[in-house]
Simulated scan of single mutants.
Amino acid sequence: MRLSNEIMNDMKQANKDEIRQRYLAVDTSNVADVLDTLDYLDQGLSSDFAPFPIRRDGIKLAGWAYTIRGQMTAFPLGGDDDKMQACQGLSAGEISVWSGDGEGICYFGELIALGMKERGCVGAVLDGGIRDVRWIGQHGFPVFARYRTPVQSIGRWKVNAWQVPVVLRGATSNFVSVKPGDFILGDDDGAIVIPAPLVEQVLAESERLTATEAAIRTQLSEGLTLAEALAKYGHV
């Protein structure tokens, strides 16, 4: 017979999977509005973070934060064992969140992306660079990164910690704090961080806003005027 804590872990994972799927159906704009009402005003990431690959049908990124931190460090060519070890800890439904002082270099390319995907990782957010953009796109691995570059990190930038609080450049503040287990949502409007204690509350209210907006769009298409919509629904 399986131990009760194993069954509980499965239930928790199932709940996390359900939450992730539901977040995929809401927009970052609605999430941002909900966070404003809760006085979390600075959760959006900088507009420098761009989606890769760029797709005509848009891109969506949703998952639980698994944080990785590094710094510019000269070291011999041959690999970064700490980076490999950090990536081994990724689990299903998680997004790898990369932070550090790297400039002009990529934090990872195609092969590491494939390794992360094999572990169930559902995307990445990089406060730094990415390369092998074409190939990563063909593997269906969504990434938000500050820039793209052909220059590797080996010999230049080294991972020094993982699953610790990190900071990423922000949209309305210099930095946004990301802790392991926070939730990351990204789409064509950008990316935003939902603190772990608020994930379910923000989701429920974002779903309510999404349903209201859908109703407004339907009624506008049926002849409702904008003035009538504002009178009926107020600001949304």
Rank of each mutant, 00 (worst) to 15 (best):
94 E>M: 08
46 S>Y: 00
62 A>C: 07
37 T>Y: 03
37 T>E: 14
35 L>P: 08
60 K>L: 12
58 G>V: 02
55 R>C: 05
12 K>T: 09
29 S>T: 10
49 F>P: 04
43 Q>V: 03
21 Q>L: 07
33 D>R: 09
61 L>T: 00
37 T>P: 07
29 S>H: 10
15 N>W: 10
95 I>V: 10
26 V>Y: 01
44 G>N: 03
47 S>T: 12
78 G>V: 05
105 I>D: 11
56 R>L: 12
53 P>C: 03
74 A>G: 11
35 L>W: 10
69 R>M: 15
84 M>I: 09
80 D>I: 09
53 P>H: 03
65 A>G: 02
83 K>V: 04
101 D>M: 12
15 N>G: 12
18 E>M: 11
100 G>S: 05
35 L>N: 10
47 S>Y: 00
91 S>L: 15
22 R>D: 08
23 Y>N: 08
63 G>P: 04
31 V>N: 04
12 K>E: 13
24 L>E: 07
81 D>L: 14
73 T>V: 15
28 T>A: 13
58 G>I: 02
86 A>Q: 06
65 A>W: 02
92 A>P: 08
13 Q>C: 11
15 N>T: 08
86 A>T: 07
81 D>V: 12
51 P>I: 00
67 T>S: 06
17 D>Y: 13
93 G>H: 04
49 F>W: 02
28 T>V: 13
23 Y>L: 11
45 L>P: 03
89 G>V: 10
26 V>S: 04
23 Y>S: 09
10 D>G: 07
10 D>S: 09
56 R>D: 11
50 A>T: 15
91 S>I: 09
29 S>R: 15
29 S>K: 14
59 I>A: 11
50 A>L: 15
39 D>S: 15
46 S>E: 08
79 G>V: 04
41 L>V: 12
72 M>Q: 13
